[in-house]
Amino acid sequence: MTSSDMDIDEGEDPSEFEGGAYWFRQGAKGAFCLPTLILMMAFVGFTSLAREVGLTLTEVLLMSLFMWALPSIVVLTGAMSAGAGLISAAIAVALSAVRLMPMTVALMPVLRDGKRTKTWHMLIVSHFVAVTAWVFAMRNLPSMPRAARLPFFAGFGSTVHFVVLCSTALSYMVLPAVEGPIAAGLVLLTPIYFMFSMYQASRTSGDKAALILGLILGPVFYHFFPGADLLLTGFVGGTVAFVGWLFATRRAEL
């Protein structure tokens, strides 16, 4: 919906218009893949939790639509069910969503097509930045022509978003409360899927080192500095991995 507006906006040159619409459709087709299915299952696990704590269907859908980041949605659900105040809930959610900032910073240079990409386009498609779309984009976009990347990502992101919203609504209304081992399995899906897809999306040995360091440092910082643990894990783990990779690959230049 938002992205078709974009195509019209770029429509002065007919071939450009065709190109954008074509890549948008390609992105939409690309959305029917395993990662989307896994995300749908993970949201099924969330609807089960949401019903348990008494969220309505409208609230569940609004959270999915406006936030579009499962870990943060789970944090807000916890805060709302505990009757937390607005400010403390906002701080908890903001802390859990900090990761979206470096993810967006890392994705934008891949998406941008020089000066032809308008900032408001970037602001709109940035809404689709979440682990699933980010991993998919970092893996698939670099091999595409620059002009194709933004419409492709918009098509992919909006389709995944729409499909997951539909399946979330359906599972809230139809599925009985999932319990026991299956429910635990659905919750485990998110971290397991994140882990393997991050590994596949890593481009350099530096990225792989960052992944492994983050897995180790995360629990350590959580134990010693709860609250600031994710930021610390990102900065310390990422910087150490980056510096190590720099020394390993460019020793001659340094």
Partner: peptide, 20 residues
Amino acid sequence: FAWVRAVATALIAGIIARLV
């Protein structure tokens, strides 16, 4: 850019560890 990507990756890895 490579550094930012490493930071984002380590941050997500931290979330993975926490969720497990």
